[in-house]
Simulated scan of single mutants.
Amino acid sequence: MSDPLIRSLDHYVVLVPGESEQLLTAAATLTWLTERLTALNPWPEDLRGCDGASEAAERLLDTACELETSPGVCVQWYAVRLEPPQS
């Protein structure tokens, strides 16, 4: 199970081999993952039970930080905090 603190973060750094890193909002990261999953066939075993790419993307965002898009090529995303937490 993922750390609840991760779900409270609103931004992710996205890493794609051969491209510059991107800083995306959580919503944009979810869209970015959904697009990658739509183009991926077959899906990883643990995502095959999901009802569509959107649900699979949400699961990935909550449980993983890497997706192999072709043999030996992985995209990665990491939650980042842009501002210190308010006390």
Rank of each mutant, 00 (worst) to 15 (best):
L15H: 13
E58V: 03
S2F: 05
D62I: 00
C74N: 12
D62C: 07
T34I: 09
E45A: 09
W77M: 04
I6A: 04
L23Y: 04
G72N: 04
M1A: 13
W32H: 09
H11Y: 15
L33Q: 13
T38W: 02
E68V: 07
Y12G: 02
V13S: 03
Y12N: 10
D51Q: 11
L60K: 04
E45M: 06
A57T: 11
C74G: 04
S20P: 03
S87N: 00
D10K: 15
Q86T: 14
A57E: 04
P44C: 03
L9M: 15
D51A: 12
V16K: 13
E45Q: 13
T31N: 12
A27Y: 11
E45G: 02
G72Y: 08
A57M: 06
T31P: 00
L33F: 13
L24F: 10
P85I: 01
S20V: 05
S87F: 02
H11K: 09
Y12S: 04
G72H: 08
E35A: 15
C74S: 15
C74Q: 15
G18P: 03
R7V: 06
V75G: 00
V14F: 12
W32Y: 11
E35Q: 14
T69M: 06
P85V: 04
N41W: 10
E21Q: 10
H11V: 07
Y78N: 03
S87Q: 01
E58S: 06
T69R: 13
L30K: 14
R81W: 03
L82H: 14
D51P: 00
E55H: 07
A53K: 08
L61Y: 10
